[in-house]
């Protein structure tokens, strides 16, 4: 049984949570920064991704904090989420090495 390929949005959201819990808008900001502005998640898209990741038990709620009268819910990676993200990062890094090798770019000697 092979795992389903991870979407780009899911990959960025998991990466945004890799160094600690974040709330919804915090994830939006972190994803924009990680992607150098290329991925700007809308709230509807973000919560579609969060809901799927939570159903797959890759993320879980961490805590809720009151802020300006609103309750912010923070999310964190689960152990499975950390493992899946690490595996996905490996796959993407290996793919990037192959691409660099085929394009004859610097740092391609490690591709194999």
């Amino acid at each position: 049984m092979t795992a389903k390929p991870m979407t780009g949005q899911a990959f960025f959201v998991l990466t945004a949570l890799a160094d600690g819990p974040r709330h919804g808008y915090g994830i939006v900001g972190e994803v924009a920064e990680l992607s150098q502005g290329r991925v700007r998640l809308k709230i509807g898209s973000l919560y579609g991704v969060l809901e799927r990741l939570a159903a797959e038990r890759l993320i879980e709620p961490d805590r809720e904090e009151a802020h300006d009268g609103r309750l912010r819910r923070y999310y964190r990676l689960t152990r499975d989420g950390r493992r899946v993200l690490a595996e996905e990062a490996e796959i993407r890094a290996a793919t990037a090495r192959v691409v660099r090798a085929r394009l004859g770019l610097a740092g391609a000697e490690s591709a194999g």
Binding site: G24, I43, G44, L46, H67, D68, R70, L71
Partner: peptide, 21 residues
């Protein structure tokens, strides 16, 4: 069923994107 779980959080995230304090 979805709103019961996620609406409050979505609203908070949406307002975070707009409001300045």
């Amino acid at each position: 069923w979805y709103r019961e779980q996620w609406e409050q959080d979505m609203v908070a995230a949406f307002l975070d994107g707009w409001l300045t304090g």
